[in-house]
């Protein structure tokens, strides 16, 4: 069954036709070539597919695309403005918070949502907020640091 849906994708108004059984992740990747969100498990356990829907992080593998009607979706591709990177993206690079890069888009989106909601989180808040994003490379210490660096900057503003 096909559905015509309208939504905002990375700040752009979209009208699109989707089948009932397509997840948001598959539509982002296959129909829009936004491949920054990855499928790591397909079951909402790893967080590699994390995008923001109305500002909240969700696993796009667990959301049917038809449910995105009227909502605002932000993927990693929409986070930077042209070549001007978001503070978090810069901080991840400067603090060595990425290695293979496969979890990185989802990780940054979870961190972004946290800082939007709570600009000055504690280290414990950060760990809890990214516990749905698995990283096998870094051991997390530098990821937590990269997020805290941005948070501390917020704190001093």
């Amino acid at each position: 069954m096909k559905h015509k849906i309208s939504f905002i994708l990375n700040n752009e108004k979209i009208t699109h036709e989707v089948e009932s059984n397509k997840t948001l992740l598959s539509v982002l990747r296959e129909d829009f070539d936004f491949t920054g969100a990855k499928e790591g498990c397909g079951m909402g356990e790893c967080g590699a597919c994390t995008v923001l829907v109305n500002g909240q992080p969700i696993n796009s593998c667990m959301m049917l695309a038809v449910d995105i009607e009227g909502k605002e979706v932000l993927t990693i591709e929409g986070l930077s403005r042209g070549d001007v990177l978001d503070d978090l993206q810069i901080s991840f690079i400067e603090n060595g918070a990425l290695q293979c890069g496969y979890c990185t888009p989802g990780m940054i989106m979870s961190a972004k949502a946290l800082l939007n909601e709570n600009p000055t989180p504690t280290e414990e808040d950060v760990k809890h907020a990214i516990s749905g994003n698995l990283c096998r490379c870094t051991g997390y210490q530098k990821i937590v640091k990269a997020i805290m660096v941005v948070a501390d900057k917020n704190n001093n503003q």
């Binding site: 491949t35 591709e77 990177l85 690079i93 990185t104």
Partner: peptide, 23 residues
């Protein structure tokens, strides 16, 4: 020296294409 990783920007922007991303 701790220079930034050279593949950093491609990875934090989601621009890097892994095999499953190729169409």
């Amino acid at each position: 020296k701790s220079i930034d990783r050279v593949d950093g920007v491609k990875k934090v922007t989601g621009d890097l294409k892994y095999v499953d991303d190729l169409k």
